[in-house]
Design a protein around this nucleic acid. Structure first.
Length: 326
DNA sequence: AAAATCTACAACCGCACGAGA
DNA sequence: GTCTCGTGCGGTTGTAGATTT
């Protein structure tokens, strides 16, 4: 037997809410509270489904909501928490006062994912793409590695060319050239040179990541004792360590023990070993039982809850958390 | 100026859970 | 234990406005 619908779909209005509807809902809730969502539309004189009313209230009308842009601190919190809990938007939103899970989800999907990708970081694993490639490369035979490198370079090249030829960048280059008194021809030449140089740097960085044996110990790819992404980034300046207006905040990820800003983010991946978990976080969180909903205890496989009031959430001080994640 | 494309965000949908009968 | 109901959640879609061609 299927679930009965929450309302008769024929009789309810859908789509954008009007200011009048917002007023009706807000004033009804101000008087009567949010006790029974199924009854609220009827009693408030709205031709909406109760679920729609609940969503409208929780995501938009609630007086404690923030409606402005996400601050850099909020973005960093989202990135950090996402690297730990994944797409558990309600958990992430609980740490951001005035933000809803829908807000956080939308912001992640529209902006943060792209920002991370633009920084060469996989938004799913939170690992640098180059290291993912290198990790894959360790499982391949040398001829296959060559093909992989070719394919990766193709992707990088297309992406970089796309980015570098964006109108906005042209405009910025044009402005800087204009201020130097350069003409259009030199502008185009310098842009082409910059593309070529960038591609060469990508090639160098990727080949190093794949070839350097020390860089990727077979069974402990992200070991804190190994070479760091900082080193890699140092050899490949085209790989953006920070992107205008946004940083992956190496300082807050910084592991005092080895000075590597990236090791902790690397620990989120499937290759993170038990030893690596000291001071970093698990590759995957496992919940007690099958429930993956907010409010449940989150545990490491055999380890105690990682979120307690004294513990450090990565390097996010516990004070930064609005609500303990349990 | 108009069409095409992109972006951001609101809203919807279906599934799952917990509480209570 | 089972069923119903209310609610929470995450994924997806729709769309208005902005930007680019």
């Amino acid at each position: 037997m299927g679930r009965i619908p929450c309302c008769e779909k024929d009789n309810v209005k859908r789509g954008q809410w009007t200011p009048e509807e917002d007023n009706k809902l807000s004033s009804y809730i101000a008087q009567h509270g949010t006790r029974n969502w199924r009854l609220i539309p009827k009693n408030a004189g709205l031709q909406r489904c109760g679920k729609s009313c609940r969503l409208r209230w929780t995501n938009y009308l609630r007086p404690d909501l923030k409606h402005g842009q996400f601050s850099e601190a909020e973005e960093q919190t989202i990135v950090k928490l996402h690297s730990i809990v994944g797409n558990r938007w309600s958990i992430i939103a609980a740490q951001l006062p005035g933000r809803t899970d829908n807000d956080v989800k939308n912001h992640w999907n529209t902006k943060l994912k792209k920002k991370l990708s633009g920084m060469g970081i996989d938004p799913v694993t939170h690992k640098p793409f180059s290291h993912l490639m290198a990790e894959i490369a360790t499982t391949l035979e040398p001829p296959q590695v060559a093909h992989l490198a070719e394919a990766a370079l193709g992707c990088f090249k297309d992406e970089m060319l796309h980015l570098l030829t964006k109108r906005r960048i042209d405009f910025q280059l044009q402005q800087s050239n204009a201020s130097l008194g350069n003409n259009t021809a030199t502008h185009i030449n310098s842009k082409q040179e910059e593309q070529d140089e960038t591609i060469e740097k990508i090639k160098l960085g990727l080949s190093r990541a794949i070839q350097e044996p020390d860089m990727l110990p077979p069974n402990k790819l992200w070991d804190s004792s190994g070479p760091t992404f900082t080193n890699f980034a140092g050899t490949c300046s085209a790989f953006p360590y920070s992107v205008s207006g946004f940083q992956y905040e190496p300082s807050s990820f910084s592991n005092e023990r080895d000075g590597s800003p990236w090791n902790q983010s690397m620990c989120t991946g499937s290759t993170c070993t038990a030893g690596d978990r000291q001071g970093c976080l698990p590759d995957k969180l496992e919940e007690n039982g099958e429930d993956s909903r907010a409010g449940k205890e989150i545990t490491l496989r055999d380890e105690p809850i990682i979120f307690n009031s004294d513990s450090v959430l990565w390097d996010l001080p516990s004070d930064d958390l609005m609500h303990p994640i349990v």
